[in-house]
């Protein structure tokens, strides 16, 4: 966040960054009051366009604001470098960054929503351009300032970082993989509970080469389940750490 704010401030100072200005002149299809601010925060000088090729699937009404299921699919775009997921009106808008390398640019997970908000995926392609898709989700509220249930349980510490997962051969997508990490994912917005969240997950193939990186932020739901596609052969490992330096690792056979 700090880095982004700094960049945004620089962009504002130079004032005439024409691309940022250009995106502000395009009408936000979700009509969010915060879009122009988001655009300056996240994209600064980069070229940004709204695109139907970026699909964000989420139910229009959040039944559980602590865990709103979302699936981002950018497989219609070539050469995806990064997927940035954010919710304009969340107190912490940045939800997740995903660098798919050789994984499919497609990811499912749950997030916490404090109030109704657009949920967007901005997808950066190799030419440096951002393609933005999104959908509006209405929420009951409370998702971000309510402490996660997990930290209220006495046994969460003993299960912290416990990782489970597997491949699903029966899926239409090649290399469909799901994994879950036990973690409270505290936002730091609830009284007396500091931010405590998984901040980096590396996905590696059998030879130890990194095939993708997921960087979750505070709004990702507690005990997150990630759904991804990792085509290829052999086992895949996921290893990660949280912002307190706790590490976890697990390996899944195909």
């Amino acid at each position: 966040m700090k880095l982004i704010r700094t960049i945004a401030a620089a962009a504002l100072l130079t004032a005439a960054s024409s691309n940022a200005y250009a995106v502000l002149s395009v009408k936000d299809p979700l009509n969010s009051p915060a879009w122009s601010y988001m655009a300056r925060e996240y994209f600064a000088d980069d070229t940004v366009s709204f695109s139907d090729l970026v699909k964000v699937a989420a139910a229009p009404h959040a039944e559980d604001s602590m865990n709103v299921p979302v699936m981002v699919d950018a497989t219609a775009l070539d050469d995806v470098q990064e997927i940035l997921v954010f919710a304009d009106l969340n107190p912490i808008p940045t939800v997740l960054r995903f660098y798919p390398h050789s994984m499919e640019p497609k990811i499912g997970f749950g997030l916490k929503l404090q109030q109704g908000s657009p949920i967007r995926a901005a997808v950066k392609t190799a030419d440096g351009q951002w393609h933005v898709g999104g959908t509006w989700v209405n929420a009951a509220g409370g998702g971000c300032t309510a402490p996660s249930v997990g930290s209220g349980h006495s046994d969460w510490a003993s299960r912290l970082g416990e990782t489970s997962g597997r491949f699903f051969a029966g899926n239409n997508d090649e290399g469909r993989m799901k994994f879950k990490v036990m973690h409270p994912m505290d936002t730091g917005l609830a009284d007396g509970i500091p931010a405590f969240f998984i901040e980096r997950i590396e996905v590696k193939d059998a030879s130890g080469d990194e095939v993708g990186v997921i960087m979750p932020f505070e709004p990702v739901a507690e005990n997150p389940v990630f759904t991804v596609n990792t085509p290829g052969d052999g086992p895949v490992s996921v290893s990660g750490r949280d912002n307190n330096g706790n590490r976890f690792k697990a390996e899944f056979a195909r």
């Binding site: 139910a59 009404h61 039944e63 559980d64 865990n67 299921p69 970082g161 416990e162 990782t163 489970s164 997962g165 597997r166 799901k178 994994f179 879950k180 389940v225 976890f248 690792k249 697990a250 390996e251 899944f252």
Partner: peptide, 26 residues
């Protein structure tokens, strides 16, 4: 449509979790 989507939230998580075997944490 609304109720089906709500039911996914109510019921699917447990079905998902039951299919994710705990792996040896290394």
């Amino acid at each position: 449509t609304n109720e089906f989507q709500r039911s996914v939230v109510h019921l699917y998580q447990a079905l998902e979790a039951a299919l994710l075997p705990a792996t040896e944490t290394q």
